[in-house]
Simulated assay, not measured.
Amino acid sequence: MKKVLSVLLSIVVIFALGGCGSKKAAVVTDKKVITVGASPIPHKEILEAAKPVLAKAGYTLKIVEFTDYVTPNTALAEKQLDANFFQHTPYLKEFSKEKGLDLTYTVKVEIEPMALYSNKYKKLSDLKNGASIAIPNDPTNGARALRVLEKAGLLKLKSGELISKVDITSNRKNLKITELDAPQLPRILKDMDAAVINSNYAMEAKLKLTDSLVVEAKDSPYANVLAVRTEDKNKPYIKALSKALTSPEVKKFILEKYKGAVIPAF
């Protein structure tokens, strides 16, 4: 009888410990402080607008600022961040493939139209033969910039998504295309005839979309997204963050703050 009682007691203890372990595992699937990497404008500002919505849901948002297009994804993959918000879907897909990262996204938040800016010319028709044009040097934004130039009638390009300047089939003004790091483009504008600049860097440099020579079409597929590790996509805190970033409060903020320079994608 003692042996039987001892065995039964052991079983009860094992199940009790197992139950505690299950509860602990359930707790760690959620967290109350969410750390998100973002570029300063407009992403950090949009996250700030989402803070009160998250607070109502019981979460605190911690924002880590980045000024480049590489570090936020590596920091996310290395679990220094819970999510990041700075990039569009083609860039996330290409970067993850190239670096072998298991990243995905949850929601599309906003679109930042790319545009051609110049300190020397006020009209596209004034652009001279042999003019120097700078574009981003990463594959997705470089391709996107070339399509902006094609839309303006300055170039003709091969079909495809990840095109580069070697895919130019017609260059009627013999434009000299230079590829540079995206954050540098506003700073080198004084040394170039024009540059195709991402909206976030243009806004940081106080460049107005209304002063640009040509603007990307509003039906652009380059929506900026909330990027996460694939394993975390369905966790409660990620779902809460995704909901906050696509809330009516955030949409109103985007419309009122940026007046068309940033467009809600939800």
Rank of each mutant, 00 (worst) to 15 (best):
M1E: 09
K2Y: 05
V7H: 01
L8H: 02
L9V: 07
S10R: 04
F15H: 03
A16F: 08
A16W: 10
L17Q: 06
G18L: 10
G19E: 08
G21T: 15
S22K: 15
K23P: 00
K23V: 13
K24A: 15
K24I: 15
A25C: 06
A26D: 14
V27W: 08
V28T: 15
T29I: 15
T29D: 14
D30N: 15
K32N: 15
V36W: 01
G37R: 02
A38W: 01
A38D: 04
A38P: 02
P40I: 04
P40C: 04
P42R: 07
H43R: 04
H43T: 06
E45P: 03
I46N: 02
A49S: 08
V53K: 00
A55N: 15
V64W: 00
T67F: 07
Y69L: 14
P72A: 02
N73Y: 11
N73W: 03
T74P: 00
A77D: 09
E78N: 12
D82C: 02
N84I: 01
F85G: 00
K93T: 11
E98Y: 12
G100H: 03
L103M: 00
L103H: 00
L103N: 00
T104S: 09
V107M: 06
E110V: 14
E112R: 06
Y117A: 08
N119Y: 12
N119A: 13
K120V: 06
K120C: 05
K120M: 02
S125W: 10
S125H: 12
D126Y: 11
N129T: 15
A131P: 01
A134N: 09
A134S: 13
I135T: 07
I135H: 04
D138P: 00
T140P: 01
N141W: 13
R144K: 14
A145M: 10
V148E: 02
V148N: 00
L149T: 09
L149P: 04
E150L: 09
A152N: 13
L154H: 11
L154I: 11
K156P: 04
K156M: 12
S159Y: 08
S159N: 13
G160L: 13
G160D: 12
G160W: 08
E161W: 13
I163F: 10
K165W: 04
D167W: 09
S170H: 13
K173M: 11
K173C: 00
I177D: 06
E179G: 07
D181A: 14
A182N: 03
P183G: 09
Q184R: 14
L185H: 09
R187P: 05
I188S: 13
K190G: 15
I197Y: 10
Y201D: 07
L207I: 11
L207Y: 07
L209V: 11
L209K: 03
L209N: 03
D211T: 12
L213T: 09
V214F: 08
E216L: 14
P221Y: 05
Y222A: 08
A223H: 11
N224P: 10
L226E: 02
V228T: 00
R229S: 04
R229M: 03
D232H: 08
K239A: 05
K239Y: 05
A244I: 06
A244P: 00
T246E: 03
S247N: 03
S247W: 01
S247M: 04
K252E: 08
G260D: 06
G260K: 08
V262I: 12
F266H: 04
